[in-house]
Design a protein around this nucleic acid. Structure first.
Lengths: 252, 252
DNA sequence: AAGTGGTCTAGACCACCGG
DNA sequence: CGGTGGTCTAGACCACTTA
């Protein structure tokens, strides 16, 4: 149990704060995930393999994985293995979209890109993305239609340094959901997001894009999405028509 | 391990679905909580005591408690014990209120009751509360002011059969947050809630109550709150002014 | 049948809290 | 100091998947 190993640094009597073994294992797993040792959709090694690799018991690895699974970074499948989360499976696409039709039915969705620009980061966006004001961001504007009726007007900002080679043409040609595309094409996994929600009146532009009258109430959803290490990777402002859809949420 | 006990029914080879021991323990704990064996704010017995009581190992009790703690029904405090959740502590009052000021400051709050009636349940409310249409509900209307500015107009429905003895006078005299009052006075613990959120235009009445102009965009939040056993105990419609506040949410 | 995650146990020890 | 929750282990066995 005391081989020369990067873990188990006997954290009794040290300057640093106490951290249980399984938290250290969790940190190591997170590092491997961040570095792409295992890609979204792939299986990570079995619990026993990881236990051997880290020289700890299965139970300790298990507790580390438990937490990562609770945070939706990993998915356990009994009898099969433990897998890296992805936005790329039918079941979890639009995982972050909380807008639902009032009746239960599954609407058809269509995305139309209406603009894509490279610009110097506006001050507010730069702050939210932890960029310098001189950095470049990619700004994408699009309309999402549900059952062929325009419903969401999105305004999206991405750090250009991370999304290298994202051209307007590429954006227009892409057919995948954005987060699935980000994963596969740019290696960026969106793990978590914070949203702040308001009711606003439709401006002339948004009214025209969404085919409603100026002044109509719209749900404004501002999102900041994060990847590993709480690094912000996207800012998104959505304007939602909520006459036949609603934003659902659960409180605990 | 096979004393005559209400648990551990050797669920191999039976008609019923497999359920692990810790789930059975969890169900027993839930039953005790629902029946009020331990009241909100109180400590439940120690893990070792519960292990003895149910004739299982500490680890099994632990896993049951872990899940209840993850659902916010219990709160663990190292060195002190495990406690039944309550809406009555300074730290967690307004636990279900997601409206936050745009700047970080903590606003002062005031609640003014503007109406309280006993009525036959409207069809929609009856459905949401799983009542018969002939059942009586209590309808409370109030305005919440933040920093002395009216910000939330609430319309609340409660099953009269459960909230026995809730008179208009009692409602007016109560100074506690509602959910804390429900706990102490009526023994109803609100554990979980679903919300659906829309943007709407202020009607004449809501505009007057909230001192905004007719047609102003308001955030409409419809909530159904549940107690033990997923029994719905409250329906609430809130209209929020979101010019200086926002509804915050986290996605995982 | 082999391999994976999931359960359960018994016991040792640690960190935190209060008297 | 004793009592509480929290960690960690080693090992046995169960349930689920795939081949």
């Amino acid at each position: 149990m005391s081989e020369s190993n990067s873990v188990n640094v006997t954290n009794s009597e040290r300057g640093t704060a106490y951290s249980p073994l399984y938290q250290q294992i969790k940190a190591l797993l997170l590092k491997s995930l961040d570095q792409g040792e295992w890609k979204p959709g792939e299986a990570i090694p079995s619990e026993l393999d990881l236990a051997a690799r880290f020289q700890v018991s299965q139970g300790t690895v298990r507790k580390a994985i438990d937490e990562l699974a609770a945070e939706n970074l990993l998915i356990r499948r009994q009898g099969k293995g433990t897998f890296v989360s992805t936005h790329n499976e039918a079941k979890v696409r639009y995982r972050f979209l909380r807008l639902t039709p009032d009746d239960g039915h599954q609407p058809t969705t269509r995305s139309e890109i209406i603009g894509c620009y490279r610009v110097k980061a506006p001050a507010k966006i730069a702050a939210l993305l932890a960029l310098r004001p001189v950095d470049t961001v990619i700004n994408i504007q699009r309309v999402l239609s549900f059952d062929d009726k325009p419903t969401i007007l999105d305004n999206i900002w991405l750090p250009a340094q991370v999304f290298k080679g994202m051209t307007t043409e590429a954006v227009m040609q892409n057919r995948e959901p954005l987060y699935a595309w980000f994963e596969g094409q740019f290696g960026v996994s969106m793990l978590r997001a914070d949203e702040s929600i308001r009711a606003v009146a439709a401006t002339e532009e948004s009214a025209q894009r969404l085919q409603v009258s100026v002044g109509s109430p719209l749900l404004q959803v501002e999102r900041v999405a994060y990847t590993y290490g709480e690094r912000p990777m996207e800012v998104r402002q959505g304007l939602y028509i909520t006459s036949h859809f609603h934003y659902r949420n659960s409180l605990n």
